[in-house]
Amino acid sequence: MSAVNVFVTSPDTRSERRFDLHITIEQLKGKLELITGIPVENQVLHLVNSLDDTRPIAALSEDSRPLGYYGVRDYQAIKVDDLNPATSFTGQLTDTSQVDKFELTEEEYSKRADTVLAYKQRMKMGRFAEKEANAAEEAKEVAIPVGSRCEIESNEAGLHKRGTVRFVGPTKFGTGGTWVGVEYDEPMGKNDGSVQGERYFTCAPKYGVFVRPEKVKVGDFPPEELDLDDDEEM
């Protein structure tokens, strides 16, 4: 085996990657900087058994050692900690404590005529739609297994939105029927697996998305690798 599939986790990211076992820890850190946003000099790497079992197996601390030296196996995880968050963006992507919020009570919101809720009421969309139409939509069977790899239809040429199916079924949002919840490999999504306060699955912020089944193609779609030029691997 010359390469392994592993999960990479950091304070702001989680993804699945494939790495050559012959690259050095120093080269690996260069790749991880592009994935996590944590500068090489601030990275502390630990190998853990899985995303659920985060007890350290080994510290990947010797820059000159190849990754394979540490006995890395498929679907273990590399945990990337930041020694100096003040010099990077660690935590800032998910910290909304300093953001001023404009809030309306539910009663105030329901009385306004320029809202999405008012538009849906006028157009009989969502929970305001005809019950017969919703029932017909919900009756459709969808053969998309949870846990399968998939690629999502994109309007941008050459853009592959790949990920893993995490949810299939009806939701409390939208116009009824079946929705497919996907955890993207990259932060190209819109949520963390929850919508309007209702959780359907769990993933990192901006990695989750819900789409209609017809936009989902299930198959053998491995995570995209970051290919760096030789002069970038020092």
Rank of each mutant, 00 (worst) to 15 (best):
M1L: 08
N5S: 11
S10M: 07
P11M: 01
D12N: 04
T13L: 06
T13C: 07
S15K: 05
E16I: 11
I23G: 02
I23K: 05
I25W: 13
I25Y: 07
Q27C: 04
G30C: 04
L34H: 09
I38R: 02
V40G: 10
E41Y: 14
N42V: 15
N42G: 06
Q43N: 01
V44I: 15
V48E: 04
S50H: 15
D52P: 05
R55S: 12
S61E: 06
D63P: 10
S64A: 09
S64G: 06
P66A: 08
P66L: 06
G68E: 04
G68H: 01
G68V: 03
G71E: 13
D74S: 10
Y75F: 14
Y75D: 13
K79M: 13
V80W: 05
D82A: 00
L83K: 15
T87R: 11
F89M: 09
T96I: 14
S97N: 10
V99T: 14
V99L: 12
V99G: 04
D100P: 10
K101P: 11
E103P: 10
E106D: 12
E108W: 10
S110R: 10
K111T: 05
A113L: 13
D114I: 09
D114A: 06
L117M: 13
L117K: 12
L117D: 09
A118W: 11
A118T: 13
Y119F: 07
Q121H: 04
M123I: 11
M123G: 11
M125K: 08
G126Y: 03
G126F: 02
R127N: 13
E130H: 06
K131R: 11
K131Q: 11
E132A: 15
A135Q: 04
E137K: 14
E138G: 09
E138H: 09
E141M: 14
V142E: 15
A143S: 05
G147V: 01
R149W: 04
C150N: 03
N155L: 14
N155T: 15
E156Y: 11
E156A: 12
G158I: 00
G158C: 03
G158M: 02
T164H: 03
V168W: 02
G169L: 07
P170I: 14
T171W: 02
K172R: 15
F173P: 00
W179I: 02
W179F: 08
G181W: 00
V182H: 00
V182W: 00
E183W: 02
M188N: 13
K190E: 14
S194L: 00
E198W: 02
F201S: 00
Y207N: 09
Y207Q: 09
V209K: 07
F210W: 04
K215V: 08
K217A: 15
P222I: 05
P222M: 13
P223S: 01
E225M: 12
D231K: 08
E232N: 08
E233R: 12
M234K: 14
